[in-house]
Amino acid sequence: MLKTGTERVKRGMAEMQKGGVIMDVVNAEQARIAEAAGAVAVMALERVPSDIRAAGGVARMADPTITEEVLNAVSIPVMAKARIGHIVEARVLEAMGVDYIDESEVLTPADEVFHLLKSDYTVPFVCGARDLGEASRRIAEGASMLRTKGEPGTGNIVEAVRHMRMIQGQIRKVVAMSEDELMTEAKNLGAPFEVLLQIKKAGKLPVVNFAAGGIATPADAALMMELGADGVFVGSGIFKSENPEKFARAIVEATTHYQDYKLIAELSKGLGTAMKGIDISTLAHGERMQERGW
């Protein structure tokens, strides 16, 4: 008997990515650079988040030509983004054979009320979260991997740090609670009780949790690992830097050896200017991607 799309197979795929870096790419050439630099997966998209931010308008699933080009260019897993709640974009990506779908707030949501029922799919999903309530809701819908939302395309780590600290702190609180306090915590967080119970018993999330949204330097990547991330997504940071190849390698090494500070100092030398970045307080609420989805 052969079973595909099981919870173990979908979550397991993310387990294999741990300690690694997943890089945003917009064509085959970038995908090959990412693979050679030691990325554990690439995220195929039409524009990196900072360009999506600059372009404005509605951001959708990438043109399948781009996704296909990337799928054919590398042997590492290929992820792609679907709009929140866009059942058909997700099904199309699944049919194309992408290895992981990101139901992503970087794209303009297709549904402001309902997220995808991800347990329905054979392909695994990664979703963004700002706190344990959001994380638990996504897990209950079938997400096999989580990431912080951060604030994509800003090159500013502050939101990813906020979200990671928030989630880790809330996990510690749940673990320390007695079981009879858990339902009230579920109500307060808006989290399914069963997911919280699972977290309490295991002492950790049942799925892998990566950092994403604003990582712009090797030290940023190492910081997120220090705060408990299982790995990192780097979006605009790499291919918006002066020397993407060198930059990509440095991020990979800093993620593996996140507590080797002398090494991170070496890695950070002569990387050229990182992306300029945006102060979050200058973004109006409508411009904050993290507020998409719930």
């Binding site: 052969l2 079973k3 595909t4 054979g97 290895d99 392909v123």
Partner: peptide, 12 residues
């Protein structure tokens, strides 16, 4: 990747 992509991943 001899059995295919992630959608072909399985338990047996």
């Amino acid at each position: 990747n001899a059995f295919g992509r992630q959608v072909d991943s399985f338990e047996a």
